[in-house]
Design a protein around this nucleic acid. Structure first.
Lengths: 210, 210
DNA sequence: TGTTTAGATGAAGAAAACTTCAGATTAGGA
DNA sequence: TCCTAATCTGAAGTTTTCTTCATCTAAACA
């Protein structure tokens, strides 16, 4: 008996020629655009294909189904952000903790705010079970990186680093989301950022064994 | 030409007899249960009706469409939580700020953690455009309440109260979400809560004009 | 230039839900 | 008890979207 719930996840075919790579890129880009314009509910594979300037068939050549397409788009976005924040992590290695977390805050908010609409659109996708897994995975990796970063600090931290990292992540994510959801003016953004910096500085200061 | 996109939002009919009220309640309860068991993607009106022990027709008598049904369920949940947190707000009126925010943190986390699965299930719904509006609305009201609460504090706060309230909300929400999404053991929960209390205490302390 | 392989197409089939409505049931009052 | 209004039922119509596949086009290469 053939398995009924096949639902493959892997791409159906790997692009080898240039034009196919272009197609995949266009499709992924179009996915975000459609998500932005009509929302997840009314996103259809046909619509995505049309926007990408290809036919549905082409889409299905690279993505086994709609769900996989959305997941791919989400993953791409998440990885991009992760890479940016990682960059900051590397740059801050060995610096004083307070400076570290300030840089982290600035970088985290900046990245998200560069394209708030994209963030919001993809955020809807991540609420699916599959999407949540991707987001959780990225968060876990980011946390590991943060722990390593904290380890490199000159100060002795009396709080458990795992815990600290989780708290910092949660706090930053909370503010990030708030900024995303309420599209506030640029000025409000900076005020919030300053405030968040204050919060995390105070927090890590409290974690330093004197 | 008749408008094609009617999509009414209001209930189709108001319950007047006891049995219809019971039906509505059952349907709303069933919605959450189905959401929990099969997720938003596979939630169908028929399935909800079946679980509620009524027929689809009955469901459509009170909810014009699936979307309205989900919205109603979300609203109910949000209002319940809001009411609980409001209760704490009233109780803390006039207390020192640090105590206030501690109570707020405890209450916020406690309420959400009482039924984490329900929270997570409904959270998926709120990512829809309509759902986001409901959540945002509730958050705005909660913020107003928080501002009032802060006003009643004996200390003089040098930071703008609107800003403070927003920051506090964002931070608490961030941790709340983290706790919801990663179902951690009870012990981890308490550690996080303690840490969050530390964070908000430090923050409000910094906001007090000495 | 001819052959082979990768890639693209889109009409059509299949599946899944939503939503309606005409008729059956039940409750409450006269 | 009988009548009316409220409520319930669920099969069937409608719509929507996913997904496939036989066929066509373009690229690579000898």
């Amino acid at each position: 008996m053939a398995q009924k719930t096949a639902t493959r996840s892997e791409p159906r075919k790997s692009p080898v020629q240039a034009r196919s790579t272009a197609s995949v890129d266009a499709i992924l880009k179009a996915t975000v655009q459609v998500l932005l314009r009509v929302g997840k509910e009314k996103l259809t594979t046909t619509r995505v294909a049309a926007r990408a300037g290809v036919s549905v068939g082409t889409l299905y050549q690279y993505f086994p189904n709609k769900s996989a397409l959305l997941r791919a788009a989400l993953k791409l976005h998440v990885e991009e952000i992760l890479a940016e924040v990682d960059k900051v992590s590397v740059a801050q290695r060995g610096q004083p903790v307070e400076q570290m977390v300030e840089a982290l805050v600035v970088a985290s908010l900046e990245v998200k705010m560069r394209d708030p609409k994209k963030g919001r659109a993809l955020y809807a996708v991540s609420s699916d079970v599959e999407g949540a897994k991707i987001a959780a995975d990225a968060e876990a990796r980011a946390k590991d990186a943060l722990v390593e970063l904290l380890k490199s600090a000159p100060e002795t931290l009396k709080t458990d680093l795992q815990l600290m990292a989780t708290v910092l992540q949660s706090i930053i994510a909370g503010v990030k989301r708030r900024l995303l959801e309420s599209d506030m003016p640029e000025e409000q953004f900076e005020v919030m950022q300053r405030e968040l910096v204050l919060v995390v500085r105070n927090y890590v200061r409290a974690c330093v064994g004197h």
